[in-house]
């Protein structure tokens, strides 16, 4: 090797030996880099070419979206062996959703959080849910005295309970934060995430004042027989690893006219849901007749999730 003149660098002396050594070191170095990055290659081989080049949800044509939905459905069926359908639910014209919660009758049973967990195909080991129920101390609305990990009969003495989920703000800070429009507000007020577009920077999670957003720190684990087969592209389909997710007011149900899962699970009827544009809706009656309040009103986020006390 040293006999040859591999390539001539314009410096004086010792060119051949040094250059050869350097070339050797460079080869070794490259090999080392390749070895170090090998796990990435394993991961990359699991990626899907079509998904990689997939456009933003709102730029997809009807046909393109149909192809994607078919593919997602097919994959989910293959993976779970259940008759999964991944649909695309569009907002209903003339509907803007709002939610109200009666703090006087909420007993803190966490049935809503549990229903959310099941309905939205949440990761089982972390018992993930879009709803966190705070056990609050009577005498104020002070989250500093709140506790989410209570584990004793409810309602406790001198406690009241405050379930918190996405407030579907009219002025959502998470949407402004996103650098790539992977999260946006739809015409019915629901803030959604395109799981196939999100890059997982988690700026929205930092921006949300209500701890409403969740990140998929790993691929969500749901046993196949527990998978909810009624899925939607923007809501409860099983999320990929490394992207954000959030409460969508169960748009796969509510955009079909049904109640969100958390409302149906509530044993006391503390939850009121409906179309805020319909003057005869229950939610309108609550807003007009109860003294409702929103969380962190001073931030100007204009939540569409209202709380009220009866007594």
């Amino acid at each position: 090797m040293s006999e040859k003149k591999p390539f001539s660098l314009p410096v004086v002396g010792e060119v051949d030996r040094r250059t050869t050594l350097k070339a050797g070191a460079a080869t070794l170095g490259l090999a080392a880099w390749a070895a170090a990055l090998k796990p990435m290659v394993e991961w990359a081989s699991s990626l899907d070419r079509d998904e990689f080049f997939q456009k933003h949800y709102r730029e997809l044509t009807r046909e393109q979206l149909q192809v994607i939905l078919h593919k997602l459905t097919f994959e989910a069926r293959k993976e779970t062996g259940k008759p999964v359908t991944v649909k695309d639910h569009k907002p209903i014209p003339g509907v803007v959703f709002a939610y109200a919660l009666n703090l006087s009758i909420c007993i803190g049973c966490r049935k809503c959080a549990e229903a959310c967990h099941v309905e939205n195909n949440h990761d089982r080991p972390s018992n993930q849910s879009y709803i966190r129920v705070f056990e609050m101390q009577k005498g104020g609305i002070d989250f500093e005295k709140g506790n989410t990990t209570y584990d004793r009969p409810v309602p406790g003495k001198d406690k009241y309970y405050m379930p918190v989920q996405c407030q579907q703000c009219e002025n959502p800070p998470c949407v402004s934060a996103c650098p790539i429009e992977a999260t946006w507000q739809e015409s019915d007020g629901i803030v959604v995430v395109d799981y196939n577009w999100c890059i997982g920077c988690r700026y929205c999670e930092a921006a949300c004042p209500y701890h409403a957003r969740r990140f998929n720190w790993t691929k969500p684990e749901v046993p196949p027989d527990e998978v909810n087969p009624n899925q939607s592209y923007l809501s409860n389909r099983i999320r990929p690893q490394g992207v954000m997710e959030k409460c969508t007011f169960c748009l796969h149900r509510t955009r079909e006219g049904r109640m969100p899962a958390c409302l149906e699970a509530c044993p006391t009827g503390a939850r009121v849901f409906g179309n805020i544009l319909d003057p005869d809706s229950e939610i309108r009656w609550v807003l007009e007749n109860k003294r409702v309040f929103v969380l962190k009103e001073e931030l100007g986020t204009k939540p569409r999730f209202y709380y009220f006390f009866d007594k």
């Binding site: 999100c198 890059i199 988690r202 690893q241 490394g242």
Partner: peptide, 19 residues
């Protein structure tokens, strides 16, 4: 820090969506 570095191109103005 990105959860999905493979989607880096979504940040490139013009071909991605730059908010």
């Amino acid at each position: 820090d990105l959860g999905r570095p493979d989607r880096f191109w979504h940040m490139i103005p013009g071909i991605g969506k730059f908010n």
